[in-house]
Design a protein around this nucleic acid. Sequence first.
RNA 1: GCGGAUAUGGUGGAAUGGCAGACACCGGGGACUUAAAAUCCCUUGCUAACAAGCGUGCGGGUUCGAGUCCCGCUAUCCGCACCA
Length: 881
Amino acid sequence: MSKIYNPEHIELKWQKNWADAHCFEAKSDKSKPKFFGLIEFPYPSGAGLHVGHPRSNTAMDIIARKRRMEGYNVLYPMGWDAFGLPTENFAIKNHVHPAGVTKKNVDHFRQQLQRIGFSFDWSREVDTTDPNYFKWTQWIFLQLYKHGLAYKSEMPVNWCPSCKCGLANEEVVSGRCERCGAEVIRRVKSQWMLKITKYAQKLLDGLDDVDFIEKVKTQQRNWIGRSEGAEVDFAIADSDMKLRVYTTRADTLFGATYMVVAPEHAAVDAMKDRIENWDDVIAYREAAAKKSDFERTELAKDKTGVELKGIKAINPVNGKLIPIFISDYVLVTYGTGAIMAVPAHDTRDWDFATKFGLPIIEVVAGGEDVQKAAYTDVEEGVLCNSGFLDGLSVAEAKKTIIAWLTEKGLGEKKVNFKLRDWVFSRQRYWGEPIPLVNCEKCGWVPVPVEQLPVLLPDVDNYEPTDSGESPLSKIDSWVNTTCPCCGGAAKRETDTMPQWAGSSWYFLRYADPHCDTDLARWEELSYWLPVDWYNGGMEHTTLHLLYSRFWNLFLYDIGAIPNKEAYLKRTSHGMILGRNPECYESMTTMERFNAAMDGIEAWGAEKILKDGADALPAKDAFMAMKEDEQKAVIEKLLDEKKMNKWCAEKYGDSSKHTAAKMSKSKGNVINPDETIAEIGADAFRLYEMFMGAFDQAIPWSTEGARGCRRFLERVWRLQDMLTDEEDVRKEMEVAVNSMIKKVTDDIERMKFNTAIAAMMSFVNDIYTNGKITRGELKALMLCLNPVAPHITEEMWEACGFGEPIYAQSWPKYDENKLVAAEVEIAVQIKGKVRARIMVPANLTQADGEKLLENETVKALVNGAVVRKLIFVPGRLLNIVC
RNA sequence: GCGGAUAUGGUGGAAUGGCAGACACCGGGGACUUAAAAUCCCUUGCUAACAAGCGUGCGGGUUCGAGUCCCGCUAUCCGCACCA
């Protein structure tokens, strides 16, 4: 009888063994093929790891461990994306230095990750707040600056009044600050911007060369938002001014019955003298500026605007005079900030025209009455009321009109993107200082490379200022410096970089994390990059993933790195959900108590209430308790099962109602430490991978996790069934080979749940059989090792199988031993299964006829005329008669 | 509004157009225990209860055969959102 399975003991032992052996450190043996597996490095928050982190980490750990066994030189690194607001806010509140907070959090995270047994190469750990690291973040910024891709711009930015900080568009979620939830307002500030728009086309094109899951590509394409159209000039009547618009529907030009410009559009000011209702215009403009993005969105349906009285534009195709309006449904940031309005064929224009009583002229026939609704179909329609375009399809008309406009010098073909430039300034302390100084004589001057990094000074107070300046601006000794160019007095830039900066190139640093002459040495970059497989969350698709591709493309263009695209392959995991607290929160104390009473009756009171109340029947005792005592008792009694049952009754039986995204505020976060303490790291890893399809959101189930522990107990006890036989027994060949094949294939497809199911089936087979040979156990240990590395190493050692598994090769399967000699097939009559028969596995399609001789089949056919016979070898026989 | 995804037992989920529900969780029963836990074995889609019938969100279609393919809906989730 083997010892009792004690995960904690085994896991700590092997974690130490691996560290001592340095077996997961990436070697610079460039003769071997390399594999660079990457997962997003975490932000080390004070709350510590949650169960979502290990889902991605475990998946890539499995792949990394398998690759090592397959003979690859594997780089699987970990680091910390450690700049960021929560740390800074914590530091402000508790009057401590953010660096100290960061260190403490990082140490906690590292310890938590190590307890799970990931095969990270800890010798390559990176930390974005380490000056040796952010020296190169600053260096990259200066390259962007030198190549004209960083510029300062007075522009309206999204301003979070609570964080007192400018936000990128990507950080604004339905009008609210992504971090704190406060309503975002618009505020004009001078900001550093990165010209990511210059790379819009390259970022789009690059997607064709990489293996990203389709929905990531689609989301990036939509975010970049390329559209093909034309710019057209509309002359202003009685002047030599022109108003240029962008349109994707140049074909509908004859239907343009008015124009709209954004309230902030410069042309409005240029025409000031001729506008008769200037006061109205100014009033509208101010009202629009005051609106938050949220209000703009809220009122999206309700069109407002003011006509510029006294001014008319001329439609270039028919010379008609048309009015001009300002309205905030036209955005100054897109296209030319002005549009031609074709109410008959654009829903927004139709809404506006209807409200303001403007003419609606049909120019594409084929739809319903355009007076009732806009007709926007571009596939079916045929042009009408459009002079020389009449009778053409929309596509033909577009070509024709653009050619005509180009020839006349009235317009031209134009491509536009939704992608905006990246607001790169933050008025915060805990970020990389932007390494520029402002000299009155020389303007903005980069800090020379040899003076990098520009370090953060020690500050007493990290509180942002109400003026919107960074706390750094208050440190005169730091701000005042000399100009590197002329040696005169100069001031440092006090804005810092956003959190995205450090994470936009960290994968490059992993190739050579201790290099102090470059961001990483060329030969290391050429060997390790690009990243072979990057797994991460969908929430980073349009932010981090796009930004880092942008930096990588840029660094490639300036010859700093050898690879164009950063990541060859991108996959994504689903979220892990917790219990929906609404269920629990909406219960009254009595309801909770009643639900809990079931538990009391079922299990006996004393046991459950051991350290709660003294006596039962509990109702009286319970009612006598203080409220928080009651709460504690209820928490103890209301296990997951009861909660689900209760929620199901209240909300219907779907678990979708009982599950919700985990968050601290909802109080439904599952703590991995507690789970690991209960079931061990191997069972935890196993459950994370087994719980469901890897790419889908899944509610956590404590019961399900315990089931995985149970499986490992079963595996552990296989030692008691072990025989002295070295080889795989004949009768187990199919089971062993098909398991190896299934596990091998499914790991590559990230179908971890079915890979694990295959191993469970195998173990079930062994239990039925009662015995296991050394060869059979070896195969199982090797397959299971990437998922549950500790228990498999321990058993491998205990059984005397030789060198540790981390030094073993991945098992191979024999194609010829995947199916038994005889297989069961279904016999169908007209598609209905009527019987199952055993037949030799090697029958081919041609043997189908012969099966009619089979007694069972004969009886089913019962002398009827067989009209058609379908035989699918190994699967079924279908007889139509 | 646009884009993407999803829909299968009490639950999580399996299933290259070929035996729907693998593998688990929960539940039920049994064995072993003074007892409990643990473990092992059996059972577990629904209805009827004989060997039958019905079942993959809804309505059509293609096919010898559809959870899977096609057409038309519905519901839910996620992302974007006045992008001309």
